[in-house]
């Protein structure tokens, strides 16, 4: 009985400690942001690694998600003779939800896991300790540019996801299903608002980019410095980042769209 109680307490303390370490880690990394401005090349390299290299999977997924949305939406709307609203259905679901969320999930799988493995291996091969020996703060030199790169790349990826998805939906709706082209766009333009919908999607994706990159970097930095430890940390990154994105998405959606 006491053993069970002790294990519960130890687990709770362990989790709290990790959360605390995570936030301290974030604080130190954010402290490195001002020193990034004169060396923006470091950030550009990270935007390349997490943004440009994720472009293909984001664009292809976006295209297919948009096409499927159009097909499925059509099947439902055709019963009501409201197939002109297909553009609204596709655009609103992509811009508000699927672009930021699917984009962030793919980002966690594609870029987040790579970040964790990279940082974890740097730690395992003692590159981070070597930097400290040379009086270079690895949190500022290695981690901070990656975090900023992720924050910049994610909203761009989400916007590309939504735009490609809408084009995919357009191709299926107008090309395949014969929805009127003008009605498709005009209904979309009438119902999608620049600030309520597009801007809140962008805000969402900035938040997701921040959270996913933060989790990925912390898991890598906190990993047990063995090959097994790094592999576990990589798995944890994908799982925790995906859960965080889905949970946060609910909160953000409730905040943004809850009252109307």
């Amino acid at each position: 009985m006491m053993g069970l109680l002790q294990r519960l307490g130890a687990t709770t303390l362990g989790i709290t400690e990790r959360i605390g370490r995570g936030h301290l880690f974030l604080l130190y990394v954010l402290g490195g942001f001002p020193s990034l401005l004169p060396r923006f090349g470091l950030v550009i390299k990270q935007i390349y690694a997490s943004g440009v290299l994720s472009l293909l999977i984001i664009a292809v997924s976006g295209l297919f998600v948009g096409m499927v949305l159009a097909l499925q939406g059509y099947n439902t709307l055709v019963d009501f003779g409201a197939t002109e609203s297909l553009g609204v259905v596709v655009a609103l679901s992509l811009v508000r939800e699927l672009g930021p969320v699917m984009g962030a999930l793919l980002f966690a799988g594609r870029a987040g896991s790579a970040l964790t493995a990279e940082i974890g291996l740097m730690k395992a091969t003692e590159q981070l300790s070597a930097m400290e020996m040379m009086a270079v703060n690895p949190l500022h030199r290695v981690v901070a540019p990656r975090l900023l790169g992720g924050i910049i790349a994610m909203p761009l990826l989400a916007a590309i996801f939504s735009a490609v998805g809408i084009i995919g939906g357009y191709l299926v709706a107008v090309g395949l299903l014969g929805v009127d082209e003008g009605a498709f766009w005009s209904q979309m333009q009438a119902k999608v608002d620049l600030f309520d919908d597009v801007a809140s999607g962008v805000i969402k994706s900035v938040v997701f980019g921040f959270v996913v990159t933060w989790i990925a970097l912390f898991e890598g930095y906190d990993a047990v410095p063995t090959s097994e430890g790094v592999s576990r940390a990589t798995t944890r990154t994908v799982v925790h980042a995906s859960l965080a994105v889905l949970g946060l998405n609910f909160i953000l959606t409730a905040l943004m769209f809850g009252d109307d």
């Binding site: 590309i160 333009q189 999608v192 620049l194």
Partner: peptide, 11 residues
């Protein structure tokens, strides 16, 4: 993509 979302898609 953002420009398309704001001009072509939104109002």
């Amino acid at each position: 993509a953002l420009l398309m979302l704001s001009i072509k898609v939104s109002n």
